[in-house]
Design a protein around this nucleic acid. Structure first.
Lengths: 161, 161
DNA sequence: ATGATTGCAAACAGTTTGCAATGAA
DNA sequence: TTCATTGCAAACTGTTTGCAATCAT
């Protein structure tokens, strides 16, 4: 985690952006909540604990900056809120998401499942792909078992295989 | 197109929703602009030509209704606007989109490219998929050729193969 | 020293809602 | 007739912006 932070600092410097305490605190929050999909407001509240003077506008500006630097992906699950998802170190694409339509939980698929599909799209549609957004809407394991006999039994325990 | 309209009317009736002129005009607009990805405001302006008294709120309410009935998919390309995409007759999933990061154009892939991927996700993540959102961000054919020698020559003419 | 960055408040944009009036069934 | 639906305006929510003060370099 420390290394990732240093690397991000380096990237900011490389583009001659200043490393302010506010930016540092924001990145810290993102690192500490890698698993989550925080909205700007969420980030704001968490950053406030470390840097109480920070303003919401600064959080927005920082998140936008991180998005431009491709450190973070701005994603959107259809509620009217943008969420910010830290990229894995070295990842060159946004990862996939599973959104449960019962409980609202969001989990991630880090494995890239689109390799073949992208090849096909680039070939058949002559479209040069730079990034993607893939989200599945459905029912997560917990909700499947809670909500009585489903018509198709779940096979695995969840978690990334 | 006429048949699709009748079918939609039937679906409204089936759920005992009333078929008002405003709803009819809205559906008409969606049918006449199937290729586009209209925002609520876009739809509003177009519907106003047929039914000048209509209010924006009614358009929003109608689009939400159509979304619930799965006649339309509410999609979001990351600008802060929801867009409404008419489903193909009988389609049980949202189709895929290609968004050009140069010119902003959006085109559609109607072929379902996710069959295998979904099988894998359902199996390995024990997630019951109900729908998906897949968008590729990249450079469309036009922009590839305009913007000088790209490092990889486009092979096809675009359009759905 | 100096231009980038910040906090604040005000401005915006898209969407939702309360309510009296209207209209489809 | 009767309850869903509409139009309007006002309310809301998330996000952006202008500006003087501040701070990293």
């Amino acid at each position: 985690m420390k290394e990732r932070m240093d690397q991000i600092k380096k990237e900011l410097h490389a583009q001659s952006y200043k490393l302010t305490p506010q930016r540092e605190a924001t990145v810290e929050v993102l690192l500490e909540n890698e698993e989550d999909h925080l909205s700007a407001e969420d980030v704001y509240l968490l950053v406030k604990e470390k840097a109480p003077e920070i303003g919401l506008a600064t959080v927005y500006r920082t998140l936008e900056l991180l998005n431009e630097l491709e450190i973070v992906d701005k994603i959107n699950f259809g509620d009217g809120v943008s969420r910010y998802d830290l990229r894995k170190e070295g990842a060159d694409h946004s990862h996939h998401h599973l959104v449960c339509i019962h409980c609202g939980s969001v989990s991630e698929i880090e494995e890239d499942l689109l390799g073949d599909v992208e090849k096909k799209v680039e070939r058949d549609w002559a479209f040069k792909i730079k990034d993607h957004r893939l989200t599945f809407h459905g029912v997560c394991v917990n909700c499947q078992t809670e909500h009585e006999a489903s018509d198709e039994a779940p096979t695995l325990k969840a978690a990334h295989p």
